[in-house]
Design a protein around this nucleic acid. Structure first.
Lengths: 359, 359
DNA sequence: CTGAGGTATGTGTTCGAGCACATTTTTTGT
DNA sequence: ACAAAAAATGTGCTCGAACACATACCTCAG
């Protein structure tokens, strides 16, 4: 009955098996498992004992088949047509859609303008109208995100966030990186390749509301310098994208002792372009993210290292965590901190190649 | 019928739906889908047309429930009690077991002595006796592995390999890293942190049969030097673990111009220990794998970088690829080349932390 | 002592795919 | 033209969990 003799393996116990063992019907077992009541104390005790004894695990395949529900998920992120950083999210969503093509899962993407609160609020309301089972969002605007997340929670929508974290106990799951560590890593890399010297920490195009996101990285950078006996020192600057060229060049002129540049976001290529244009050599440059333009400068050695935040993997994990939660009641860690990848010109391709020879 | 109006979403088409659309019974649709024959040309064409039209995707949950089979997998790897490198595989297997605890999957682990062909052959035969559905193995001995893989294939056992690759067209799936790239990465790192100087490439405990494994890395290392206008140069050495101390010290004495050491396997800590014991400073050390002992020396800066081969993730992927293949007929790339992670003392923790706060 | 009203327990159907078996239709040979 | 064989098609049950519904059991009031 419970043994498959050909393979000499135990097959999993089913509700029917348990019913027989306990001398009751499968209906009663079901009521005990789901604590639906309407069960005598004796029956409850008997069945519970057996469940514990055999360490019963329900067949999730069967459960899911019965549930047979269409799950709707919404992705609420900054418009990837406006900032290349978010473009990889598009691929991440595509991967998930492909992987779960055979299941009844619908994913709707809503893009907001990452610097426009109104667009964020408008798209949030569209999400509410769609009445999804879950939402995966980037909480760009701290205060507004908090309000919206509470609204979602009130509608019994499960909310996960990624990229940057905010504190709200309604959040199901966060996927991202430890930004302080991220900054420390940059400092360590400068320490290793320079040994000593002054490094400029740069914010570019920093009219973002979530400046905390960048501050954390700088905090980590400084913390490393403070906690080790390194001969590295740092200074912090903010540039708008518009006046970058003139401001940056005059900064370099006034600070000839600068040995390295740490750009705290994906706009690293902008600095690289300036260095190349003005033939500035011997400045080490470390920045973020595998945008096409960054990759070009990494390959020709204007950029020494890129720290990979892997937005694609973040959104992928955020979505699959939600799906597995709905489909198989899988538990996931509340905080999902991803590895921080150090990329140089040589290991780059091992991160960017998609799929290798199916046949 | 096909629309769930509450959510205004299309539900997936079922075999029954297709049968109605084509004006045949679900049995006929089934025969068309599985190309079992016994279908008239007209019916075949009609059903095929509709299948293509609606892009039918079978419900894998239902398919799997019906199949309802216990899948047995064997893991055939070097004994992780004898070489710490393989220890992380134990955790990888554990993760997979936990993740698939609710499914009828049995995983049996067989450990062979990584330097003893006879033990490898004996364990291989034990695998054959177990008649598993699939095997995930490390093909330590090239010739013997090839033979065994053919034997497995003859018994209709699906074979995947990981860690190191061999050419055999019966292999279902390979998971590992590009070793040539791996060597290039080490060279690039020396290039960045040294700028110039001579580097010793070391094989330690190299009475392995699969020396190709290490040769590839050296090949990559040299290739980098050759392809760039770097001022780095290299020399290659082999040490046994027994005479390491005396041989290594005399090598250093005779070669005072050595600026860096590249250990091509996880025995990096042995070199680190010697450097510390004899107070040798100013030698940059790069090696492989996050063994406890390596980590200690990475943290106190005797080792500058470790390249992470992530055996745990390799075995995890190898196993899940097999399981998803059996359970959901999922296709996987034949070659699964994993990213090559560069680890220093600062991003280390982002790779080693397991799970973060479930509650 | 009987039936209402509650609780406890059992039964039967559903989900979608897959496959064995039953039934119908077509083809073939005499 | 008709039976027999072959091919095509249809039917119905199974997998395990979930849940609606049916039935059995018990208690207490009238």
């Amino acid at each position: 009955m419970f043994f498959c003799y050909i393979y000499r393996m135990k097959k999993k116990y089913t509700i029917k098996d348990i019913a027989e063992l306990a001398g009751v019907s499968k209906g009663t077992v079901d009521r005990v498992i789901h604590k639906r009541g309407k069960v005598s104390e004796k029956a409850f005790a008997d069945v519970s004992r057996i469940l514990a004894e055999i360490d019963y695990k329900p067949n999730l395949i069967a459960r899911n088949l019965k549930n047979n529900k269409i799950y709707t998920l919404c992705v609420l992120i900054p418009d990837y047509n406006l900032d290349q950083y978010w473009l990889s999210c598009k691929e991440g969503i595509k991967s998930v859609k492909q992987e779960y093509a055979s299941f009844d899962i619908v994913i709707k993407t809503l893009l907001y303008h990452s610097k426009d609160v109104d667009s964020f609020l408008q798209k949030s309301n569209e999400v509410l109208d769609l009445k999804p089972d879950g939402v995966l969002m980037v909480p760009s605007f701290q205060k507004e995100s908090d309000t919206i997340i509470n609204l979602f929670a009130n509608q019994n929508i499960v909310v996960s966030i990624f990229n940057n974290n905010i504190t709200n106990d309604k959040i199901f799951n966060f996927v991202g990186q430890d930004l302080i560590k991220s900054g420390r890593i940059a400092a360590k890399l400068f320490d290793l390749i320079l040994g000593e010297g002054k490094i400029a920490v740069l914010y570019i195009g920093a009219n973002y509301k979530n400046a905390t996101y960048f501050h954390e990285k700088e905090k980590g950078f400084r913390a490393y310098i403070k906690s080790t006996q390194t001969k590295i020192s740092s200074t912090t600057l903010t540039f708008s994208t518009e006046n970058l060229e003139s401001e940056f060049l005059s900064f370099l002129k006034n600070n000839p002792d600068i040995k390295g540049l740490f750009v705290t976001n994906s706009k690293t290529y902008m600095v690289a372009e300036l260095l190349e244009k003005h033939h500035i050599k011997n400045l080490k440059l470390i920045g973020y993210d595998l945008l096409d333009k960054n990759i070009t400068h990494l390959k020709n050695n204007t950029i020494q290292f890129l720290i990979h935040q892997n937005a694609k993997h973040q959104i992928y994990l955020g979505l699959t965590n939600l799906i597995e939660h709905f489909m198989f009641s899988k538990t996931t860690p509340k905080n999902n901190l991803l590895p921080i990848n150090i990329i140089n010109s040589e290991n780059l391709s091992s991160y960017t190649q998609k799929e290798i020879s199916y046949s």
